[in-house]
Each structure stands twice: as structure tokens, then as C-alpha cells.
Design a binder for these strands. Structure first.
Length: 494
RNA sequence: GGUAGCGUGGCCGAGUGGCUAGGCAGAGGUCUGCAAAACCUCGUACAGCGGUUCGAAUCCGCUCGCUACCUCCA
């Protein structure tokens, strides 16, 4: 009754019904971060988008292997031959071992994502741990005549590849256009065509990240890791490949080329891309220096932030837009998201507290209405993971739940079966699929002080029955009240 | 320049031919000792111009404005 999931496939430029290659198994690969800096709001969108997809696929009963990589090698600072690895550069300026930089920011990334209630992937491979697989892949491509070695580096031969395949099929680019627009500043390039991209780069003497290979001591090219690792863990062709829209070209285009050049597949059946988060209408990004890191959002310490925003506020903010739309950051939007999130969570608590009485005269139209509103929640998700629509539908359903709570709708007039279904679905969608958890804003110590106040009051009025009662309630929480000469305090029960 | 996309009420943000998206903010009301929550009602939103159509925010054309990718990027 939940209908079927459709996803927009960048490869075909249309929405398609999702049909796994080997149901009930689903293989999903998502491009993770290059760990050379703090994760920002933009990173969280990709993580949260595919987290919801991961969760929903599991909710639908699929057995999902979700692979999300950590890039810890290989991304050059620029395309010039003297380019330096981002991580190596960071390591050198920070006087650290490259792997220290990698470990530190990987840990930070995990902390931030955990706060956002993003589930860990099934496998989280690192590029540096798969140098052998990448070298093997290069050998295959060379053997197929689509890569060439020069001065210890190996390049993918785009024009040769384009004879049999279409380089640009994913991003909609045409090779002639690309050639016409090539920048003319790389006169000394060793590449045969400016479109060719590196599979292996020979390291200069001072380059600190290097591995031996048949061609030189060096390091793998930009796009190779994803091809090698997705193939290793998901096979030559799998179901879903995801990532940010900015990776569409050249990164994913090159992945498809590498995959076709080695195992003759498009890598994945469905290519899914999330759009960017903007700030004042501009893409949030490191190069533009207009990004807000997740920890800044959580602690409010950034000049653009009027206040701190909790992880769940951020998560809700992101889910309230469709993943393929740009989403504009603003304090107003975050503040509105906070209130909406609270509203949804209050519904969770209400459902938890509602006890179904004995069934009375069932109002059939009310039942039908509730079932329709519940079904609406799935319609959004099924339509290309439109969480914005699902949240809107949940709010509509919530109105009914709140009316039951206040007594405007009699719970007994809803069939037990319908109510159980509504309750189960609301909770499952909010917590399991959207991944929104209750953040308890209550400061326990403050609350304890308030309760101690009542105790002191009872004591002062010599209401000993009440005193004993309060003491007993504290004891249930494994807390003892301490009456001392100089005052009253509490301590954990020993 | 090439390619892709966007422009929705005070703000955010769905919708893609006819049927209330939703949230936040605002106005009025119900409930209430007060308040809050909750619920109900309300605002005549679709960049502009032209076209197709019985009917367009939704399709087509033009104009204006904005963005992304084409270098690393979630």
C-alpha cells in the first residue's frame, strides 16, 4: 500500500521506478569527504540525504550495503603538474604526519555526523588503504588501450575512449565543446589532450604522500579511488551512486569512463545527486570562503549566526527542502526549522502517551481520512525522496493526533487497527526514516533544584507525608536527599 | 563563451495543466483562573510580456534577474 519508490536518475535525466539489480539486496556508494578540514553545512546535506535514502530503503525491507568513502589522498590542489595533494599541503603547513591530519578530521567528521543522527555506512573505505586496487585498475585500463604512461605518470586517454563511448554522457557534456573551452595556460603539460585526466601521478622529490607502482613512486589520480573501492565492495555494477551535484563533472563523469574502460559498465544503475546549500544565494564552499562548519552551527560561534542551532534543527532544516533543490541558509529559516522540529517531536510524545480505550462507535469517514493522511506521508518519500512533502504530510497527520490529544476527536471513535497503524507509521517515519530524534532541552540539574524546592517547602510547613513522598520519588531515580545542618542537597545513591 | 537549472505570498519551501502543500511570522476566534500548547478561520503567491488550451504557477516563445558546473569542492 506504500506504492513504489522512484528516484531521479541523472544518467537518464528522468525519474525512474527503483528496481534493484539483485533484490532484496541494494548496493549504494556515496562520495564522502576529503578529510582536510572541518565538515560544513554543505557536507551535512549529502550525508543526511543519503542517510535518509539508506534508512528508507531499509524501511522498505531491502538489505542495503552502503559504502561511503573517506578521501585521504589524491585530490590535487590544482591541475598544474606541480600540484600538491590537499592533505599533504595541510600536513606540511601544520607540521603533522599526513595520516594525523586524516585521522583528526575523520574523527571530527564522525562526531558531527553522529550528532546529526546520520547512521554509519556499512563500509567506510579509505583511498590510502586501496592503492593496490587502484594500481590494478590502471593496469586494466592501460591493457584496454585507454590510458598511456608518460614520465612515470599515467593518463586516461579521453579522445580514444570517446571513439567507442561517449565521454560526457552523465553530465551532458560534448567533447568538442569541452575542447573548445579548454584553458590555454597549460603549455608544458605532458598530457596528450587537455581533457585527459591522471590515473597515476609521479611524485616530486619533496612530495610526502607516495606509494610505489610499476610507473613511478607516486600517488593515484583524483577519480580513481571511487571506481576501485566501489568495485571492490559492490561489484562492477551496482544500484545507486550518490554524491553532491558539484561532483557530477568531472568526478563522476571520470568514474563512468574508468568503469567503462575497465569493466564495461556505467558503474551504477541510478546516479543520484543532491543540490547545494547556498548562503545569500551563493554556493557554500571552501574556495568561496563562505562556509559555516557544523561545529560552528552547534555552538553559534560564527559572525553570520544569531544563535546556536542544535543538530536536529539542522537536520530538519535540510529535510524540509527537496534534496535536488538548492537550499538557502538564513537565521530565520533555521529558527523556523527549530519550531517545526519541536512540533513534530511533541507529536511523538503525545502518541507515546495516548492510551487506546475500548473501541466505541467507529467513525468510518474519520478512519478513512486518517489512513489517507498516513498514506500521503509515503507519497512524498516515494516521489524521489521528497522529504519536504513527507514532512508537510506529517504535519497534516499531526493535526489529527493533536485533536485526539485535546479530545476534539474521540480516540475510541477510531478503529483500534487504524490508530495502531497511524501511530506506528508516524513514529517510524519521524524517527527511523527521517532520523529525527528528541533532543531533551531540559537541564536535569535545574529540574532537580526545582524539585528540591518543593521538598524544602514541605519540610518548612512540616508536611511530613509530602516530605516522605518526595524522598521516595527521588529514591526511585537513585538519588538521595541529604538533610544537613547547613542546608539541603542531593547526591547519587551509593 | 558552452552546458544545466532557478525566479512561488513578510521569510523558508513543496507543487508541474483544473482539486487547501506545509512550516515560521502576522490577524481573528475556540478552549482556559492567567498563560502556554492545541484546534478553527484569514491573507486573493506564483519575475515580466506574449502564445497554446474550455482552463496555466504548471506547456511553448521571448525578455529580465539569479545560480551552478566547465579547476579542488557535499
Amino acid at each position: 500500500m506504500q506504492s513504489t519508490l522512484s528516484l531521479y536518475n541523472t544518467l537518464t535525466r528522468k525519474k525512474e521506478v527503483f528496481q534493484p539489480l539483485h533484490a532484496p539486496f541494494v548496493g549504494m556508494y556515496v562520495c564522502g569527504p576529503t578529510v582536510y578540514g572541518e565538515a560544513h553545512l554543505g557536507h551535512s546535506r549529502s550525508a543526511i540525504t543519503f542517510d535518509v535514502l539508506f534508512r528508507y530503503l531499509q524501511f522498505l525491507g531491502y538489505k542495503v550495503r552502503y559504502v561511503r568513502n573517506i578521501t585521504d589522498v589524491g585530490h590535487l590542489e590544482n591541475d598544474a603538474d606541480e600540484g600538491e595533494d590537499k592533505i599533504a599541503q595541510k600536513a606540511r603547513t601544520a607540521q603533522l604526519e599526513p595520516m594525523e591530519v586524516v585521522q583528526h578530521f575523520t574523527n571530527r567528521y564522525h562526531e558531527d555526523l553522529k550528532a546529526l543522527n546520520v547512521l554509519p555506512p556499512s563500509i567506510e573505505p579509505r583511498a590510502s588503504g586501496h592503492i593496490i586496487e587502484q594500481i590494478e585498475l590502471i593496469k586494466e585500463i592501460i591493457a584496454n588501450g585507454l590510458a598511456y604512461e608518460i614520465n612515470g605518470s599515467v593518463y586516461f586517454d579521453v579522445p580514444a575512449y570517446n571513439q567507442g563511448q561517449r565521454y560526457g554522457k552523465l553530465s551532458g557534456r560534448v567533447i568538442e565543446d569541452l575542447l573548445a573551452n579548454t584553458r590555454e595556460l597549460e603549455g608544458q603539460s605532458e598530457k596528450r589532450s587537455p581533457l585527459d585526466f591522471a590515473l597515476w601521478k609521479k611524485a616530486s622529490d619533496t612530495h610526502i604522500m607516495r606509494w610505489p607502482s610499476p610507473w613511478s613512486d607516486g600517488f593515484p589520480g583524483w577519480h580513481l579511488e571511487c571506481s576501485a573501492m566501489s568495485r571492490k565492495y559492490l561489484g562492477p555494477e551496482f544500484d545507486i551512486h550518490g554524491g553532491g551535484l558539484d561532483l557530477l563533472f568531472p568526478h563522476h563523469e571520470c568514474e563512468i569512463a574508468q568503469s567503462q574502460a575497465s569493466c564495461h559498465t556505467d558503474t551504477a544503475k541510478y546516479w543520484v545527486h543532491n543540490n547545494m546549500i547556498t548562503i545569500n544565494g551563493q554556493k557554500m564552499g571552501k574556495s568561496l570562503n563562505n562556509f559555516i562548519t557544523l561545529s560552528e552551527l552547534f555552538n553559534g560561534k560564527h559572525e553570520l549566526l544569531q544563535q546556536a542551532y542544535t543538530p536536529m534543527t539542522v537536520r530538519f532544516f535540510i529535510l524540509q527542502a527537496h534534496y535536488r533543490s538548492t537550499l538557502d541558509f538564513s537565521n530565520e529559516a533555521l529558527q523556523a526549522a527549530r519550531k517545526g522540529y519541536i512540533k513534530l517531536i511533541n507529536g511523538l510524545n503525545i502518541l507515546d502517551k495516548l492510551n487506546y480505550p475500548t473501541e466505541t462507535a467507529v467513525d468510518a469517514s474519520q478512519d478513512a481520512e486518517l489512513l489517507k493522511l498516513t498514506q500521503d506521508c509515503f507519497n512524498g518519500l516515494n516521489d524521489d525522496l521528497n522529504t519536504a512533502r513527507t514532512i508537510a504530510s506529517l504535519f497534516n497527520l499531526l493535526k489529527k493526533i493533536n485533536s485526539i490529544h485535546t479530545g476534539a476527536i474521540l480516540l475510541g471513535s477510531i478503529s483500534a487497527e487504524t490508530f495502531a497503524y497511524v501511530k506506528k507509521t508516524y513514529i517510524a517515519l519521524v524517527t527511523d526514516v527521517l532520523g529525527l530524534l528528541e533532543e531533551k532541552p531540559v537541564d536535569t540539574n535545574d529540574l532537580l533544584e526545582v524539585l528540591l524546592g518543593f521538598y524544602k517547602e514541605a519540610k518548612a510547613t512540616k508536611d511530613y507525608a509530602r516530605v516522605d513522598q518526595i524522598r521516595a520519588e527521588f529514591k526511585k531515580q537513585r538519588i538521595v536527599i541529604k538533610d544537613m545542618k547547613n542546608g539541603i542537597d542531593w547526591a547519587y545513591e551509593e
